[in-house]
Design a protein around this nucleic acid. Structure first.
Length: 175
DNA sequence: GATAAGATCATCT
DNA sequence: GATGATCTTATCA
């Protein structure tokens, strides 16, 4: 058993606080024999039915049902026909919330943008609904703690249509 | 430096 | 049939 692997208790807090805590942790992806460990440096939170920027704001659909499900699952979807985005589902079953991984460092290479992260880590819809606590293909590990002063927050990206919700500072990144 | 357009498809109306 | 939690390339100033 991997001691550094993130366990259920990590998800036992608010989505915002999880998005914050994920910074500095590692996203581990196994493809065949290859293992990639990507350090998370940027996240975005999508919380609740009322968050217009969230896919869940229009209610439960086939696509978003993973977000309404159990925490610590992966929510992967295709956007603009060509890019996948990788999210970690949070909050309890029945309440839609997730944290989008926007940026990582892989082999000392900065990868900014959810589409690029998924391309580099070979994330596709097969990963959708994977249990990050149990899966051997993709999971999370604790990293070095990031000092609070190095963590910045800002409005989310690409959600201008979301009315007042676009001003929420639910994007977190390491300076 | 900034802004605009094109690629391309699952999902929703 | 319209649209989007994006990225890259092209064109402008």
């Amino acid at each position: 058993m991997n001691k550094r692997r993130i366990s259920q208790t990590f998800f036992n807090k608010t989505t915002l606080s999880i998005a914050h805590s994920l910074l500095g942790c590692y996203l581990v992806r196994k493809v065949g024999r290859k293992v990639q460990r990507a350090k998370i440096i940027e996240t975005e939170a999508y919380v609740g039915l009322k968050d217009k920027a969230s896919h869940a704001s229009r209610g439960l659909t086939r696509r978003t049902e993973v977000m309404f499900g159990l925490p610590a699952r992966a929510y992967v979807y295709l956007i603009y026909g060509m890019y996948y985005c990788f999210n970690i589902v949070t909050a309890k079953q029945g309440y839609p919330a997730a944290v989008l991984i926007r940026g990582v460092i892989l082999n000392n290479k900065l990868i900014n943008g959810p589409g690029k992260v998924c391309r580099e880590l070979k994330i596709n819809k097969k990963i959708n609904n994977e249990n990050l606590l149990l899966s051997k293909k993709i999971y999370l590990e604790r990293g070095n703690k990031v000092p609070g002063v190095k963590i910045k927050s800002a409005p989310r990206i690409g959600v201008d249509y979301a009315g007042k919700w676009k001003y929420k500072k639910w994007r977190f990144f390491v300076k």
